[in-house]
């Protein structure tokens, strides 16, 4: 289940895959950076390709390929590890990535506004905490000093 930047709750349509067979099977796929680098020639631009990054993954070495991804999903290893905030901002501001960026993993609802401001479009959330997320989406202030 995901919450979008518009405050909508949606179902995640990406299938996390680990091998080429699975890659062929689905039309909307999510795979790791190492899967991507190993199978780079077999990636089809006909599919919806989602890249799964961990908070400690670097993006510089695949930056020339990012156009092929319809989604980049950055997974928080721990909510206190703030590297994904920089990853998202780099994707937007340095690498001009225009498609969806999603956050997943261990995240606090209280981080939602910061995530959206850094360029994330959606967050994968725990079903049971849906109401907290929606509430924070509605009530937390978006006011800030940064430009």
């Amino acid at each position: 289940m995901i919450i979008t930047e518009k405050g909508l709750i949606k179902i995640n349509s990406y299938n996390e895959i680990v091998n080429l067979d699975e890659y062929q099977k689905f039309n909307c796929v999510l795979f790791t950076k190492s899967f991507f680098l190993e199978n780079i020639t077999k990636i089809s631009s006909q599919k919806k390709n989602g890249l799964l990054l961990n908070s400690d993954d670097k993006i510089e070495d695949i930056s020339q390929h990012i156009i092929i991804f319809s989604l980049i999903n950055v997974r928080f290893l721990n909510f206190k590890d703030g590297r994904p905030f920089s990853i998202a901002r780099d994707l937007r501001e340095i690498f001009s990535y225009k498609n969806e960026i999603r956050a997943s993993g261990q995240i606090l609802p209280d981080q939602l506004i910061f995530l959206l401001k850094c360029g994330f479009n959606s967050v994968e959330i725990d079903k049971t905490k849906k109401d907290t997320w929606l509430n924070i989406f509605k009530t937390d202030s978006r006011q800030d000093y940064q430009r």
Binding site: G82, F85, L115, D144, Y145, Q146
Partner: peptide, 13 residues
């Protein structure tokens, strides 16, 4: 102070 207050990128250093 203003720039660093609630900085979305730098609140979980």
């Amino acid at each position: 102070r203003k720039w660093s207050t609630f900085h979305p990128e730098f609140s979980f250093l």
